[in-house]
Design a protein around this nucleic acid. Structure first.
Lengths: 253, 253
DNA sequence: CGGCCAGTTTGATCTGGATCAATCAGCGGA
DNA sequence: TCCGCTGATTGATCCAGATCAAACTGGCCG
């Protein structure tokens, strides 16, 4: 619990590595063929709406660790994630980092009360997003109340997740944090259709630690202990849950 | 950082004391005379809208520690706080508590993705709210897109506060937490027009501790130290900031 | 195939904040 | 005025998780 937990050289290196938004290729993947449309904010748009949405959206690809946007920048765009996983985080001036969430395909990044981004987002693996100018997006919304309702539902869901995370960060033990994370992450993967036995963990241990308010060592030790206790097996790129009910019990209490 | 921090007998007593919603007096305070209307979701309603809003709203008074609603209950109502201060919190099965926010006059409690309350809310001091049935509220919204935009702005603000709080809970030291809380609370009080030199703290030390992910002893000790260091003076019902810039510096870093 | 390098794991030690345990202070009621 | 109760403060001690410090692992490049 010391003051500078979360500051580490690896992170600073990573930070330096992250390029600002490059002149990405804008692809012509059509919204009507979007594989996550029903999960995304676009799930309530009809063909006509979708055509108009497509007109104002750009499809962007980002390489691993490339930034979608950075806290403090003027918020010119909103994003809807269509592939890959992004990490959303805030930094303290001395480099301590809090990951406030992981964005999955279908997630919307654009609910913000200010004209500047209040957090940073970058690609964990290879990511694709639909990027819309805030202005065009605002205009698009104004004429489509049902779409606004959808946006609102997404914001409400985000808010509930954030409140759950506050409970985790403030009142759960390290063991409970890790178990909750695994159960919650599995749940979210299942919602986007990924229901393999093995829980994929594309983010680094440092990302997990910064999400749970722990150090990388504590995350690693806790996972190792779970493995020793036969609750799971650590595999390349994830974990395989052997005793899901025990994990769920830890996560609940 | 032990597992059961936040569980305490005083809380259990308080919990038992909190009555379920009593047959409160519904007053006739008219919305057009509402002192916090411009701050609240109603700030964008015109006279006609307001009359309709009034028709579907009930004005409710709650005594200190009385519950507005409880996590897990079917969410029948939404609320707009018009006077007093409420604490919003989540509990773990063993009684550990996380205060996820304090609601001030003008705040809206109703952004939720589920048909059950995901957190509990109760009055800290004497509280007045406008209570609307979810159903009527949803209907009211559907016909008023500009109002929905307002609701959305409120949700976005809530979300940003929640993200800021995640950073605090996950990565700040006890000292930084307390300083951040004081600065942030003063800010919020100022926004509703309370700009006295002394920062009013109507909530208990336990509430503050549960908001910051600390114990009551740590909050108390930290405030005492701040006083010893002449950063502030502890007074009945609040603190007087002597060195706001030092507090702000602590809160920032 | 070997050497590097980034990320991860493991071990030893330390410490910030929790826990346990008394006071202390303010207030309402007799 | 005194008593009892509730919440706050203060002190002593403890320990979960941080910090410091090595290994270890796997992938990539020459």
């Amino acid at each position: 619990m010391a003051g500078r937990q979360g500051v580490n050289p690896a992170l600073e290196r990573a930070g330096a590595m992250i390029r600002t938004i490059s002149p990405n290729r804008a692809s012509f993947g059509r919204c009507s063929a979007c594989t996550v449309r029903s999960l995304s904010i676009c799930g309530v748009l009809d063909q006509a709406d979708l055509a108009e949405f497509e007109r104002i959206a750009r499809h962007i690809h980002l390489a691993p660790n490339e930034a979608l946007f950075t806290a403090g920048q003027v918020a010119q765009s909103v994003h809807s994630l269509t592939a890959g996983i992004a990490r959303l985080y805030k930094l303290l001036p001395d480099g301590r980092r809090q990951v406030i969430g992981f964005a999955l395909p279908g997630d919307f990044l654009g609910t913000a009360p200010s004209d500047r981004y209040s957090f940073s987002a970058d690609a964990i693996d290879s990511v694709t997003v639909c990027r819309l100018s805030r202005e065009a997006f605002t205009h698009f919304i104004e004429e489509r109340p049902h779409f606004l309702i959808r946006i609102n539902e997404f914001a409400a869901r985000e808010l509930m997740l954030a409140q759950e995370q506050m409970l985790l960060l403030g009142r759960r033990t390290a063991e409970e944090k890790v178990a909750s994370f695994l159960i919650g992450w599995r749940e979210r993967l299942a919602q986007i259709g990924d229901e393999r036995q093995t829980i994929a963990l594309p983010m680094s241990r440092q990302d997990i630690a910064d999400y749970l308010g722990l150090t990388i060592e504590t995350v690693s030790r806790t996972l190792t202990r779970f493995e020793r206790e036969k609750m799971l097996i650590i595999v390349a790129g994830g974990v395989r849950l052997l005793d899901a009910s025990r994990a769920a019990a830890m996560a609940a209490a």
